[in-house]
């Protein structure tokens, strides 16, 4: 299933996320990821919504009907940089500690806290690289994992 990424500029007002979420669930759209944050423009937030190619046209049109949605850009898959942040807490012991830290660091993760029986890693990158890290550390016992949602920006004007 092919994905499409929408970059949605919205008014930074209470309830806007609820309106977007309500529209998505009301229309039965499949959403793979949704991330919200401030922008460089006063009073504007940006939502990055990852959806399926087959529903992208209706998602765009229905979200455009929301008064608080200002602009929707469907990012060109060829010219888009995507990023996501991950925090992952994994079990370790004396025997596994070195191996876990080495594997994580080779994957591009940074260890932010290491205790006697756990380690916390932080990683920023493409979602598929975060998936790889998760799979790599799974055998050691993941205690908790949080991902921040995918954000993306187009590289060309």
């Amino acid at each position: 299933m092919s994905e499409r990424i929408l970059s949605v500029l919205v008014e930074d007002k209470p309830g806007v996320l609820a309106r977007v979420a309500s529209t998505i669930s009301r229309r039965g759209f499949n959403i793979n990821s949704l991330a919200v944050g401030p922008t460089n423009i006063q009073g504007r937030s940006k939502m990055t919504i990852v959806t399926e190619l087959e529903s992208v046209e209706q998602v765009k049109k229905q979200l455009n009907k929301l008064i608080n949605v200002i602009k929707i850009v469907e990012l060109d898959p060829e010219n888009t940089i995507e990023s996501e942040v991950l925090l992952l807490k994994v079990s370790i012991n004396k025997d596994t500690q070195t191996s876990v830290i080495e594997k994580a660091s080779l994957s591009g993760a940074k260890s932010v806290d290491v205790g006697s029986d756990y380690a916390v890693f932080e990683m920023t990158g493409a979602s598929k690289d975060l998936d790889k890290l998760e799979n790599l550390l799974k055998p050691f016992g993941i205690i908790e994992m949080i991902r921040g949602g995918r954000i993306a920006i187009q590289t060309k004007l």
């Binding site: 309830g15 609820a18 309106r19 309500s22 529209t23 009907k65 929301l66 008064i67």
Partner: peptide
């Protein structure tokens, strides 16, 4: 009311 009528209106305000 705003939450309940979100999907029942074109737009709403508090």
């Amino acid at each position: 009311t705003v939450g309940l009528t979100m999907a029942a209106t074109k737009h709403n305000y508090l």
